[in-house]
């Protein structure tokens, strides 16, 4: 963030105590953030004996076993919820991205009829949220209860992502638009051939934000659909937080695998996609967030 890594001449070198305190604080923060992940991972790899011997505090399992993963991937609730989550995330992200791009593009061009009004319509929704009950009634009136559409449509567009995309489109050089129009390209062709190819990176970020949102979402599923349409997050809630026994649903023959290990294996499986996309996300989000928050 600072231009150079070198200490400016006027700045006094750090005292030994100050430096030690800083290093200690940073190490403590890193441990506080990272330890829970390690704990979850190692518990998921542990056997019953190991968990009871260490009393839950397994840092490095001496004989790691993949039994818990074998159990959850053997078919049954977790496997199908995982497949469902992947599909919901993929379809939801595609729909959200398409709707957001269309609207952001329309709002990014000056002079489009009604543009200013439509922008206010979208921005005003940042000021209030309708609340659980009216949302539920709308979904019910539309006949979307217990459909997969109820997991996507109510959160189709985030006004924040819309603002980020719109401001990115607005900052593209206008000469490009003008040249394309003089060559006879229509609005849609300009979007497809000029705007989208120039916006690949910001589109990737917005898509990842949506994908992470869909992957983590559980509340719409809790409100609107029955358990045969639950995504992984809802299954996780049911097993880990509501304490519902896994043996009811996961094949009961595998009793040797501790419930705690299975639960943590589900946590790990839910975490992996986020950890995989995180490096890509991180490369851009600071820029994106600031564009949205500061420049608008």
């Amino acid at each position: 963030m600072r231009a150079a890594d070198v200490r400016p001449k006027w700045m006094e070198p750090p005292t030994r105590i100050g430096l030690a305190a800083k290093v200690l604080a940073l190490a403590a923060i890193a441990v506080l953030v990272l330890y829970p992940f390690v704990a979850v991972l190692s518990t998921s790899l542990s056997s019953e004996a190991e968990i009871s011997r260490h009393g839950g505090l397994v840092l490095f399992p001496t004989s790691p076993t993949l039994d818990a993963y074998r159990v959850i991937f053997a078919g049954g609730v977790v496997t199908s919820a995982l497949v469902r989550s992947i599909l919901i995330t993929a379809v939801g992200t595609a729909c959200s991205l398409a709707a957001t791009v269309g609207m952001a593009y329309g709002l990014s061009r000056r002079g489009v009829v009604g543009g200013r009004f439509f922008l206010l319509v979208a921005l005003f929704t940042m000021l209030f949220s309708p609340g659980v009950i009216p949302n539920f009634l709308v979904v019910k009136q539309l006949g979307l209860l217990d459909t997969y559409a109820a997991l996507v449509l109510p959160t189709l567009i985030s006004a924040f992502n819309l603002v980020v995309l719109r401001s990115f489109f607005m900052n593209l050089p206008t000469e490009l638009y003008e040249a394309a129009r003089i060559d006879g390209a229509g609005d849609f062709r300009v979007l497809l051939r000029i705007v989208l190819p120039l916006s690949k990176s910001v589109l990737a970020v917005v898509a990842l934000f949506y994908a992470v949102g869909y992957w983590n979402a559980f509340f719409n599923a809790m409100l609107y659909v029955n358990d045969d349409k639950w995504p992984l997050a809802m299954v996780l809630r049911q097993f880990v937080l509501q304490g519902q026994s896994l043996n009811d649903t996961v094949s009961s023959s595998e009793t040797s695998v501790p419930a705690q290990a299975i639960q943590m294996a589900v946590v790990v499986v839910s975490l992996v996609p986020i950890l995989v996309v995180y490096p890509f996300l991180q490369r851009y989000f600071t820029k994106g967030v600031l564009t949205g928050a500061v420049k608008g």
């Binding site: 709707a99 269309g102 009604g114």
Partner: peptide, 22 residues
């Protein structure tokens, strides 16, 4: 442009403004 904006506008009207009547 209006066609491109339509899904987004419909979303905001249906899921942010219509619920207020609820």
């Amino acid at each position: 442009m209006l066609v491109l904006m339509l899904p987004g506008l419909a979303y905001f009207v249906v899921f942010h403004y219509a619920p207020l009547f609820g």
